[in-house]
Design a protein around this nucleic acid. Structure first.
Lengths: 217, 217, 217, 217
DNA sequence: CTTTAACCGAGACGGTACGTCGTGTCTTAAC
DNA sequence: GTTAAGACACGACGTACCGTCTCGGTTAAAG
């Protein structure tokens, strides 16, 4: 989904709020009744994360998570509509820890920083998980959208904002098609992750950063 | 998967062979035994193609294909190891019909031609199917590799060869990282296909061609 | 299986209990969880009985029962380990309705009553079903044992007890080998049922009763 | 099936001829063409016998016999209509080796001899196989009849003839119901074989012989 | 200090599809 | 014209999960 961003001033680092589980978004004025069990939530998310280390997203089932977490299946279904939503929340904790690049620096440096940050997320099992959950979201529009919102939106906005900034300041060429460049860069990451059995290597990360700088100027 | 191509002289149009079903690759000196039923094969592939028009790859089951094709499940499993392999063969017929760009022309023109060709494949339901089957192949190494070999390898080799030619002739900048550029271009296609609920639109196709030309020179 | 009975005082009328489905034997203090659906159970047993009227045990499949009963296959497998167990439960209702002969009467009369009772069970389709399910249980030790326990054990015990009583009272000869006589009498029934395409006829029933009386005295 | 025998003089020992495979009965003046392969026949029968030592009749499949015998499935189906027919032929060789008791002796001795002979056949794995194939024949009238003809008919005729002889000579009681007694004796054997997980033991054999003598006089 | 309502675990339910096995039939080339 | 090989349509197997549905039993705020 091509980012159609505005955000000229990057007071980015949006949602520096907590993991933002879809489960916890429920801010509605809850009536009485037993409150949600934080213990169960944590058990579910922890179990999911633990399983993700050894098992592909495809091979994880809601059923197995429930059993291992010592939790009723219903409890999971109550808070997450499907496996993708669950996994997205589970990994959002560990993933979101990396800070977004701050503004004020030179566009070139910002771009480098952001790509390094994204590459760091994608290294090791993490990148594989993201690719798998991305793949798993296919064929179901809402879930597809969920993946984008939960995971990619922030990165797209940041990158687009950096590119726009660079174009404005003259550091990047004015012919640069922001949205498309975002697609090409992140697309390259995913293409690499999804076509290669091995995890994303450092070499690729270095080269894509270099090449990105080249194609912008 | 980063293309590791050589191919300086592009006697491209490599697979000028027939559809190349994995099922029909069996060139081994068939001993005795009842020969494979071409009728069944065609029924299977036709049915698969027909279903793909209306149904997502995820929602197609070997069982349903067998039933609609009037064929035993075993017959499908005998010739294709899984759904992805089947779908890849099914679409390889219609997809492979487009001719690869011939050599001799200017690199710029070749690049444009090849991207137009790829974009044409990706337009409409076709692109969605490819993205879906690509997604479906995730989480299973052999199947992942199969998708690459059957579908992407040819396109990667052609594009890489064009880029190398352009670098050699001076039409493209010498700093161009061939493999990475291939990843960025095709990556952008897939990223678009997989993140956007709508089919790939003409506008995107035009823009990515333009931008590709820009980043090469 | 030779009866190894004691039971000198025949407070017979052994199964004064309910149909005794293996499914309902579960007297354990059911914990939480959704309770078993009695409606489904009945549908399964009823459907099985209905099918048995027209179809041989061999030609009944768990799959077809599930489909006709409007029930998931899993539900059947959850409560019955295999077809034999299911059929045994299904027929235990209709079969068990006949009362066992009460004690106090003369051994000769008791013997006659019991054999008449058994013959009545074996008449018509019922006997065929029993023979078929007996046959079906062969080649699988646990199932074989299940058939014996569920169906034959009661009859063996009653007959053995009658014979022992007759020997004790002097009505039957003292040389009578109880266990073996049980085998010969019930063996004759099954041999007849399994070797003859037609259902067990009244004539056979009458004759075996007469002959049994003769061989005992 | 109650034997309805005449055969007063027992020039029995019928078919002391060769194994009498239904396959080899084909005495018709065969036309030209490739002759039937005796090697294949033997391989099929030998393989079947070998498998019967370790595997229950239920768990033997035509498919597995064909594969182990290095023979086409078609070849088996051409000569035997089903598994039961095949197994019956396979075991008829080893089984038929025991000679029938000759006439002229005293009925009591003849009876004892015949039952000893039958018991010897039923001992060990052999008896189990017979019971299994008997069971397997259930639910299919022709096959049921085949089992009777191929295996039981001879034994029924011999026993009935002995009993009739005894009645005629006054050695056995005149009230003896020949057919029914045959059913009771062989029925006891099968009932024992089919209800007991262990092979038929010597003790049972001895006792049934004793009891049979008792019930006849 | 009792209602009331939402939560929770457990797990049964109707389904769908899986991938495998065996059936009995067929279609070749080889002998 | 039989044979080995083996493909074929078919039907059933027993298993795994799906997402939904009861249950009995908490757990807290509202009355």
């Amino acid at each position: 989904m091509t980012a159609t961003v505005a955000h000229s001033s990057i007071e980015i680092n949006q949602n520096n709020d907590a993991p933002m589980n879809s489960a916890s978004e429920q801010v509605s004025p809850r009536a009485n009744g037993r409150p949600r069990s934080e213990k169960s939530m944590q058990a579910i998310l922890d179990t999911t994360n633990k399983m993700l280390l050894m098992t592909s997203v495809r091979d994880i089932s809601i059923e197995s998570v429930a059993k291992k977490a010592g939790v009723g299946k219903t409890t999971i279904y109550r808070w997450w509509p499907n496996k993708v939503a669950l996994v997205l929340d589970a990994i959002s904790g560990p993933m979101a820890s990396l800070p977004a690049p701050v503004s004020g620096a030179k566009p070139k440096d910002l771009l480098e920083k952001q790509l390094e940050r994204f590459a760091r997320i994608c290294r090791g099992r993490g990148g594989k998980i993201i690719a798998e959950v991305y793949a798993e979201s296919q064929g179901h529009t809402e879930t597809q959208a969920l993946f984008f919102e939960k995971f990619m939106l922030q990165h797209e906005e940041i990158l687009a904002s950096i590119l726009d900034q660079g174009k404005a300041s003259g550091d990047f060429r004015s012919t640069l098609n922001t949205a498309l460049t975002v697609d090409m860069i992140y697309g390259a990451f995913f293409y690499q992750l999804m076509s290669n059995p091995n995890p994303l290597d450092q070499n690729f990360a270095n080269e894509i950063i270099l090449e990105s700088l080249r194609i912008c100027k």
